[in-house]
Design a protein around this nucleic acid. Structure first.
Length: 291
DNA sequence: CTCATTTGACCCAG
DNA sequence: CTGGGTCAAATGAG
């Protein structure tokens, strides 16, 4: 029985009822993830432009509602996709991100060498294909970059900025897809961002991962390309964890500012985002189905 | 001076 | 032995 295209993704009483096969789940999840990514990009462009507009709050809420809807659908799909592990959809590169099954060794039971295991624990990982790998609402500090065999672009290694002071063990790697193998239909620059470990850092009682300095007026200590500014209690992020000069440089082209991550930044807009924008961009780590 | 990034060296799992 | 992940000294920005 052929589905009408316009109804293909419409939920009935439950998304699951309409999607009996795992392959359908996968397709829908992929499409919704793409949609979320696009909405986030769009919001990053639109909201700064509306900063002084009276409708900016309404627009912000509408963006949030759209993202909430798709998040809900994803959650529902993941929930009923019991036969196909949820992580598989996101950790699709099993060559490099293998699942370690139930016999994960607890940290406390591991032998404590001078250096920790060089091979990363891949059990708690999730990956995203995204054109904006750095807008995830968390603050990261780059600690390494490596040219990976067979890959055109280097892989960058990040750990949570607050890893030292709060013992947060969250790390992530970001690698740009080779344009030859990039399957994105619009040929936009895509990155694979792989997240390892939960964020255990916490700031001022909020779970956003955004730190708001108590002195409420000065620029945060982050510098270089990892800019987080605060002005009168308003948090704005310029660009998060962009370190390599070849990786991320802005340049003017007509009426828009490009950066080499592939993001297009409207000219004359300094990419200031309000706090609620950043919070909503943050990935929902807490509700993720960690394996 | 402080702190983030860069990058070569090192470690170690496979 | 190879290659991915991490360390840490050097460097540079603010």
């Amino acid at each position: 029985m052929k589905h009408n295209d316009s109804n293909r993704y419409l939920p009935k009483s439950s998304v699951c009822d309409d999607l009996p096969h795992a392959c359908n789940h996968r397709l829908v999840l992929k499409e919704i993830s793409k949609e979320q990514s696009l909405v986030m990009q769009l919001r990053a462009i639109v909201l700064p432009a509306l900063e002084m507009n009276q409708n900016s709050e309404l627009v912000s809420q509408m963006f949030q509602s759209i993202l909430d809807c798709s998040s809900m659908v994803i959650a529902e799909l993941l929930h009923c996709q019991s036969d196909a592990p949820a992580v598989d959809m996101l950790v699709d590169d099993k060559e490099t991100v293998q699942r370690i099954s139930n016999d994960v060794i607890e940290d406390s039971a591991r032998p404590q060498h001078h250096h920790q295991n060089k091979r990363r624990r891949v059990a708690e990982s999730m990956s995203f294909d995204t054109p904006v790998p750095h807008y995830d609402g968390h603050q990261w500090r780059k600690y390494g970059q490596k040219q990976i065999n067979g890959a055109k672009y280097p892989r960058s290694y990040y750990r949570c900025t607050y890893g030292k002071e709060q013992g947060c063990k969250a790390t992530k790697t970001v690698q740009q897809y080779d344009p030859v193998t990039n399957t994105a239909s619009d040929h936009s620059i895509m990155y694979k961002a792989i997240y390892y470990g939960r964020h255990t850092c916490n700031f001022n009682g909020n779970d956003s991962g955004i730190s708001i300095p108590k002195d409420n007026g000065e620029t945060n200590t982050h510098r270089n390309h990892d800019l987080v500014h605060y002005n009168n209690n308003q948090c704005s992020i310029v660009s998060v964890t962009c370190s390599h000069p070849d990786d991320h440089q802005t340049f003017l082209d007509g009426n828009v500012v490009h950066d080499t991550y592939g993001d297009i930044i409207p000219r004359n807009i300094n990419m200031d985002w309000q706090l609620d924008t950043i919070e909503s961009v943050q990935l929902d780590f807490d509700n993720w189905d960690w394996r």
